[in-house]
Design a protein around this nucleic acid. Structure first.
Length: 297
DNA sequence: AAAATTGCAGGGGCTGTACT
DNA sequence: AGTACAGCCCCTGCAATTTT
Protein backbone atom coordinates (compact mmCIF):
# COMPACT_ATOMS: atom_id res chain seq x y z
CA UNK A 1 0.00 0.00 0.00
CA UNK A 2 2.65 2.48 1.07
CA UNK A 3 5.31 1.59 -1.48
CA UNK A 4 3.87 3.48 -4.51
CA UNK A 5 3.36 6.65 -2.48
CA UNK A 6 6.97 6.59 -1.32
CA UNK A 7 8.18 5.98 -4.86
CA UNK A 8 6.24 8.95 -6.19
CA UNK A 9 7.62 11.18 -3.48
CA UNK A 10 11.17 10.02 -4.18
CA UNK A 11 10.80 10.64 -7.92
CA UNK A 12 9.47 14.14 -7.42
CA UNK A 13 12.22 15.01 -4.98
CA UNK A 14 14.89 13.79 -7.40
CA UNK A 15 13.34 15.81 -10.22
CA UNK A 16 13.20 18.92 -8.08
CA UNK A 17 16.80 18.47 -7.04
CA UNK A 18 17.88 18.07 -10.66
CA UNK A 19 15.90 21.16 -11.60
CA UNK A 20 17.51 23.04 -8.74
CA UNK A 21 21.02 21.96 -9.75
CA UNK A 22 20.41 23.05 -13.32
CA UNK A 23 19.02 26.38 -12.20
CA UNK A 24 22.05 27.08 -10.01
CA UNK A 25 24.26 27.04 -13.12
CA UNK A 26 22.19 29.52 -15.12
CA UNK A 27 24.00 32.37 -16.74
CA UNK A 28 23.01 35.55 -18.55
CA UNK A 29 23.00 33.61 -21.82
CA UNK A 30 20.13 31.50 -20.42
CA UNK A 31 18.22 34.65 -19.53
CA UNK A 32 18.51 35.77 -23.16
CA UNK A 33 16.72 32.56 -24.17
CA UNK A 34 14.26 32.63 -21.25
CA UNK A 35 13.05 36.19 -21.87
CA UNK A 36 11.70 35.05 -25.25
CA UNK A 37 9.02 33.03 -23.45
CA UNK A 38 8.10 35.65 -20.88
CA UNK A 39 4.68 37.17 -21.48
CA UNK A 40 3.56 40.69 -20.58
CA UNK A 41 1.82 39.30 -17.52
CA UNK A 42 5.02 37.52 -16.49
CA UNK A 43 6.86 40.84 -16.73
CA UNK A 44 4.21 42.43 -14.52
CA UNK A 45 4.75 39.60 -12.02
CA UNK A 46 8.52 40.08 -12.11
CA UNK A 47 8.06 43.78 -11.42
CA UNK A 48 5.74 43.03 -8.49
CA UNK A 49 8.20 40.52 -7.04
CA UNK A 50 11.13 42.88 -7.54
CA UNK A 51 9.25 45.63 -5.68
CA UNK A 52 7.51 43.60 -2.99
CA UNK A 53 9.95 40.67 -2.64
CA UNK A 54 7.57 37.78 -2.01
CA UNK A 55 4.00 36.78 -2.86
CA UNK A 56 2.04 33.61 -2.17
CA UNK A 57 0.30 31.57 -4.86
CA UNK A 58 -3.08 33.04 -3.83
CA UNK A 59 -1.77 36.60 -3.82
CA UNK A 60 -0.37 36.24 -7.34
CA UNK A 61 -3.49 34.46 -8.57
CA UNK A 62 -5.89 37.10 -7.33
CA UNK A 63 -3.73 39.94 -8.61
CA UNK A 64 -2.92 38.70 -12.12
CA UNK A 65 -4.79 35.52 -13.04
CA UNK A 66 -8.35 34.39 -13.78
CA UNK A 67 -8.12 31.40 -11.46
CA UNK A 68 -5.88 29.77 -8.87
CA UNK A 69 -5.38 26.75 -11.08
CA UNK A 70 -4.13 28.67 -14.08
CA UNK A 71 -1.86 30.72 -11.85
CA UNK A 72 -0.37 27.63 -10.25
CA UNK A 73 0.43 26.06 -13.59
CA UNK A 74 2.12 29.17 -14.87
CA UNK A 75 4.05 29.63 -11.63
CA UNK A 76 5.30 26.04 -11.70
CA UNK A 77 6.45 26.47 -15.29
CA UNK A 78 8.24 29.73 -14.53
CA UNK A 79 9.86 28.13 -11.47
CA UNK A 80 11.10 25.15 -13.52
CA UNK A 81 12.65 27.56 -15.98
CA UNK A 82 14.37 29.45 -13.19
CA UNK A 83 12.40 32.63 -13.81
CA UNK A 84 10.87 32.34 -10.34
CA UNK A 85 12.05 30.74 -7.11
CA UNK A 86 9.81 29.49 -4.36
CA UNK A 87 9.96 28.24 -0.80
CA UNK A 88 7.67 27.33 2.07
CA UNK A 89 7.85 26.10 5.60
CA UNK A 90 6.93 22.62 6.68
CA UNK A 91 3.68 23.06 8.61
CA UNK A 92 1.82 20.19 10.27
CA UNK A 93 -1.00 19.46 9.97
CA UNK A 94 -1.85 20.50 6.41
CA UNK A 95 0.37 22.39 4.01
CA UNK A 96 1.44 25.96 3.39
CA UNK A 97 1.12 27.92 0.15
CA UNK A 98 4.30 28.37 -1.84
CA UNK A 99 5.97 31.73 -1.43
CA UNK A 100 7.28 32.98 -4.77
CA UNK A 101 10.12 35.38 -5.39
CA UNK A 102 12.42 36.23 -8.28
CA UNK A 103 14.42 33.28 -9.57
CA UNK A 104 17.89 33.66 -11.10
CA UNK A 105 16.60 34.16 -14.64
CA UNK A 106 13.72 36.37 -13.52
CA UNK A 107 16.11 38.60 -11.58
CA UNK A 108 18.40 38.85 -14.62
CA UNK A 109 15.56 39.63 -17.03
CA UNK A 110 14.03 42.19 -14.68
CA UNK A 111 17.38 43.87 -14.12
CA UNK A 112 17.87 44.09 -17.88
CA UNK A 113 14.33 45.41 -18.40
CA UNK A 114 14.83 48.21 -15.88
CA UNK A 115 18.28 49.20 -17.07
CA UNK A 116 19.99 48.11 -13.85
CA UNK A 117 23.76 48.56 -14.14
CA UNK A 118 24.71 45.08 -12.90
CA UNK A 119 22.87 41.87 -13.74
CA UNK A 120 22.55 39.77 -10.54
CA UNK A 121 24.25 36.39 -10.61
CA UNK A 122 22.33 33.18 -9.90
CA UNK A 123 24.30 32.69 -6.69
CA UNK A 124 23.36 36.17 -5.51
CA UNK A 125 19.69 35.56 -6.22
CA UNK A 126 19.67 32.21 -4.39
CA UNK A 127 21.41 33.84 -1.43
CA UNK A 128 18.71 36.50 -1.41
CA UNK A 129 15.96 33.85 -1.58
CA UNK A 130 17.43 31.89 1.32
CA UNK A 131 17.68 35.01 3.46
CA UNK A 132 14.10 35.90 2.58
CA UNK A 133 12.86 32.40 3.45
CA UNK A 134 14.49 32.61 6.87
CA UNK A 135 13.72 36.28 7.50
CA UNK A 136 11.88 37.07 10.74
CA UNK A 137 10.08 39.78 8.78
CA UNK A 138 8.60 37.34 6.24
CA UNK A 139 5.16 37.11 7.93
CA UNK A 140 4.99 40.89 8.14
CA UNK A 141 5.95 41.24 4.49
CA UNK A 142 3.32 38.70 3.43
CA UNK A 143 0.73 40.49 5.57
CA UNK A 144 1.41 43.80 3.86
CA UNK A 145 1.30 42.16 0.44
CA UNK A 146 -1.93 40.38 1.40
CA UNK A 147 -3.46 43.79 2.11
CA UNK A 148 -2.49 45.29 -1.24
CA UNK A 149 -3.25 42.20 -3.35
CA UNK A 150 -6.74 42.08 -1.86
CA UNK A 151 -7.20 45.69 -2.89
CA UNK A 152 -5.86 44.93 -6.36
CA UNK A 153 -8.22 41.95 -6.69
CA UNK A 154 -11.16 44.09 -5.62
CA UNK A 155 -10.27 46.63 -8.30
CA UNK A 156 -9.96 43.88 -10.93
CA UNK A 157 -13.46 42.65 -10.13
CA UNK A 158 -15.01 46.13 -9.99
CA UNK A 159 -14.20 48.51 -12.87
CA UNK A 160 -15.14 51.59 -10.84
CA UNK A 161 -12.12 50.99 -8.59
CA UNK A 162 -8.42 51.04 -9.28
CA UNK A 163 -5.28 50.55 -7.22
CA UNK A 164 -3.39 53.36 -8.91
CA UNK A 165 -0.22 53.15 -6.79
CA UNK A 166 1.27 50.42 -4.63
CA UNK A 167 4.61 51.45 -3.21
CA UNK A 168 6.73 49.11 -1.14
CA UNK A 169 8.18 50.09 2.23
CA UNK A 170 11.46 51.05 0.57
CA UNK A 171 9.88 53.23 -2.11
CA UNK A 172 7.28 54.78 0.21
CA UNK A 173 9.96 55.66 2.78
CA UNK A 174 12.13 57.24 0.09
CA UNK A 175 9.12 59.13 -1.32
CA UNK A 176 8.51 60.87 2.00
CA UNK A 177 12.16 61.72 2.57
CA UNK A 178 12.51 59.06 5.32
CA UNK A 179 10.42 61.20 7.70
CA UNK A 180 8.16 58.17 8.17
CA UNK A 181 8.80 54.49 7.44
CA UNK A 182 5.40 53.15 6.37
CA UNK A 183 4.99 49.51 5.35
CA UNK A 184 3.49 50.70 2.10
CA UNK A 185 1.77 53.52 0.31
CA UNK A 186 -1.27 53.21 -1.92
CA UNK A 187 -3.52 55.36 -4.05
CA UNK A 188 -7.05 54.00 -4.26
CA UNK A 189 -9.38 55.30 -6.95
CA UNK A 190 -13.16 55.13 -6.47
CA UNK A 191 -14.65 56.31 -9.77
CA UNK A 192 -12.79 59.59 -10.16
CA UNK A 193 -12.00 60.13 -6.50
CA UNK A 194 -8.42 59.32 -5.49
CA UNK A 195 -7.30 58.72 -1.95
CA UNK A 196 -3.66 58.20 -0.99
CA UNK A 197 -2.84 56.38 2.23
CA UNK A 198 0.08 55.04 4.23
CA UNK A 199 -0.12 51.52 5.61
CA UNK A 200 1.25 50.49 8.98
CA UNK A 201 0.88 46.74 9.38
CA UNK A 202 1.26 45.74 13.00
CA UNK A 203 1.94 42.11 13.84
CA UNK A 204 1.93 42.75 17.59
CA UNK A 205 5.66 42.29 18.05
CA UNK A 206 6.35 45.93 18.88
CA UNK A 207 5.33 47.70 22.08
CA UNK A 208 2.22 49.83 21.57
CA UNK A 209 4.20 52.92 22.58
CA UNK A 210 6.55 52.25 19.66
CA UNK A 211 3.55 52.05 17.34
CA UNK A 212 1.99 55.31 18.55
CA UNK A 213 5.36 57.04 18.40
CA UNK A 214 5.21 56.56 14.64
CA UNK A 215 2.49 59.21 14.60
CA UNK A 216 5.10 61.81 15.50
CA UNK A 217 6.62 61.20 12.09
CA UNK A 218 3.23 61.55 10.44
CA UNK A 219 2.72 64.82 12.37
CA UNK A 220 6.03 66.04 10.93
CA UNK A 221 5.00 64.90 7.48
CA UNK A 222 1.65 66.68 7.79
CA UNK A 223 3.46 69.86 8.81
CA UNK A 224 5.48 69.46 5.61
CA UNK A 225 2.23 69.39 3.64
CA UNK A 226 1.74 65.63 3.15
CA UNK A 227 -1.29 64.52 5.13
CA UNK A 228 -2.57 61.29 3.62
CA UNK A 229 -4.36 59.03 6.12
CA UNK A 230 -2.18 56.58 8.04
CA UNK A 231 -3.95 53.23 8.17
CA UNK A 232 -3.03 50.84 10.96
CA UNK A 233 -3.83 47.15 10.76
CA UNK A 234 -3.73 45.40 14.14
CA UNK A 235 -3.68 41.70 14.94
CA UNK A 236 -6.67 41.97 17.28
CA UNK A 237 -9.46 44.16 18.66
CA UNK A 238 -7.87 44.58 22.08
CA UNK A 239 -4.70 46.11 20.65
CA UNK A 240 -6.75 48.30 18.33
CA UNK A 241 -8.80 49.62 21.27
CA UNK A 242 -5.65 50.32 23.26
CA UNK A 243 -4.22 52.20 20.30
CA UNK A 244 -7.28 54.47 20.08
CA UNK A 245 -7.34 55.01 23.83
CA UNK A 246 -3.68 55.94 23.85
CA UNK A 247 -4.09 58.54 21.13
CA UNK A 248 -7.30 60.16 22.35
CA UNK A 249 -6.19 60.32 26.00
CA UNK A 250 -2.48 60.97 25.88
CA UNK A 251 -1.63 62.70 22.65
CA UNK A 252 -4.30 65.24 21.63
CA UNK A 253 -1.91 66.87 19.15
CA UNK A 254 -1.70 63.60 17.27
CA UNK A 255 -5.45 63.16 17.52
CA UNK A 256 -5.86 65.72 14.74
CA UNK A 257 -3.98 63.51 12.28
CA UNK A 258 -6.01 61.50 9.76
CA UNK A 259 -5.48 58.09 11.33
CA UNK A 260 -7.68 55.02 11.05
CA UNK A 261 -7.37 51.39 11.97
CA UNK A 262 -8.76 47.94 11.48
CA UNK A 263 -7.86 44.40 12.49
CA UNK A 264 -6.65 41.38 10.57
CA UNK A 265 -9.83 39.65 11.71
CA UNK A 266 -11.97 42.40 10.12
CA UNK A 267 -10.09 41.95 6.84
CA UNK A 268 -10.27 38.16 6.85
CA UNK A 269 -13.53 37.87 4.93
CA UNK A 270 -13.64 41.16 3.06
CA UNK A 271 -11.39 43.63 1.26
CA UNK A 272 -9.58 46.65 2.68
CA UNK A 273 -11.84 48.82 0.50
CA UNK A 274 -14.93 47.93 2.55
CA UNK A 275 -16.35 49.43 5.72
CA UNK A 276 -13.66 48.25 8.16
CA UNK A 277 -11.83 51.48 9.01
CA UNK A 278 -12.28 53.14 12.37
CA UNK A 279 -10.96 56.69 12.27
CA UNK A 280 -9.64 58.06 15.55
CA UNK A 281 -12.55 59.72 17.36
CA UNK A 282 -15.14 58.49 14.87
CA UNK A 283 -18.34 56.79 16.13
CA UNK A 284 -18.46 54.11 13.43
CA UNK A 285 -16.36 52.39 10.80
CA UNK A 286 -16.25 53.67 7.23
CA UNK A 287 -14.90 52.41 3.91
CA UNK A 288 -11.58 53.36 2.36
CA UNK A 289 -12.90 56.15 0.16
CA UNK A 290 -14.75 57.86 3.02
CA UNK A 291 -11.88 58.15 5.45
CA UNK A 292 -11.70 61.58 7.06
CA UNK A 293 -9.07 63.90 5.67
CA UNK A 294 -6.71 66.05 7.71
CA UNK A 295 -8.41 68.03 10.48
CA UNK A 296 -7.90 71.63 11.44
CA UNK A 297 -5.52 72.12 14.33
C1' DA B 1 2.73 35.56 -53.19
C1' DA B 2 -0.96 33.35 -50.95
C1' DA B 3 -2.83 29.47 -48.66
C1' DA B 4 -2.30 25.42 -45.94
C1' DT B 5 0.11 22.90 -42.54
C1' DT B 6 2.80 22.19 -38.51
C1' DG B 7 4.66 23.00 -33.99
C1' DC B 8 4.72 25.33 -29.81
C1' DA B 9 3.06 27.88 -25.83
C1' DG B 10 -0.59 29.52 -23.05
C1' DG B 11 -4.95 29.10 -20.85
C1' DG B 12 -9.36 26.84 -18.94
C1' DG B 13 -11.71 23.02 -16.80
C1' DC B 14 -11.66 18.82 -14.52
C1' DT B 15 -9.72 15.40 -11.67
C1' DG B 16 -6.23 13.08 -8.88
C1' DT B 17 -2.72 13.24 -5.18
C1' DA B 18 -0.45 14.61 -0.82
C1' DC B 19 -0.84 15.81 3.74
C1' DT B 20 -2.48 15.24 8.74
C1' DA C 1 -12.48 16.29 5.49
C1' DG C 2 -10.28 20.35 3.88
C1' DT C 3 -6.58 22.70 1.62
C1' DA C 4 -3.14 23.15 -1.79
C1' DC C 5 -0.58 21.43 -5.70
C1' DA C 6 -0.15 19.12 -10.07
C1' DG C 7 -1.39 16.24 -14.17
C1' DC C 8 -4.29 15.53 -18.11
C1' DC C 9 -7.01 16.89 -21.96
C1' DC C 10 -8.64 20.12 -25.04
C1' DC C 11 -8.91 24.55 -27.32
C1' DT C 12 -6.90 28.85 -29.10
C1' DG C 13 -3.49 31.90 -30.98
C1' DC C 14 0.72 32.77 -33.13
C1' DA C 15 4.78 32.14 -35.94
C1' DA C 16 7.52 29.39 -38.92
C1' DT C 17 7.57 26.28 -42.61
C1' DT C 18 5.84 23.95 -46.60
C1' DT C 19 2.88 23.55 -50.48
C1' DT C 20 0.26 25.34 -54.29
Amino acid sequence: MHQPRLAITATRTTAEQASSRAASRVQVVDAVEAQRQITDRDHTLLTLLADHQVLTTEQIARTLFASDNVARKRLVLLTRRGVLARFRSCTRPGSQSWRYTLGPLGAMVHAASTGTATIPTAAKTYERTLKLARSPRLAHLLGVNEFFTRLAAHARANPEYELVDWLSERHATAACARIVHPDGYGTWRDNNHDIGFFLEYDTGTEKLDTVTEKLTGYRELADAGISHPALFVFPGAKRENNFHDKITRNTPALYRLPVASTTIENLAHTTPASRVWLAVGAPARCDLTHLPGPRAA
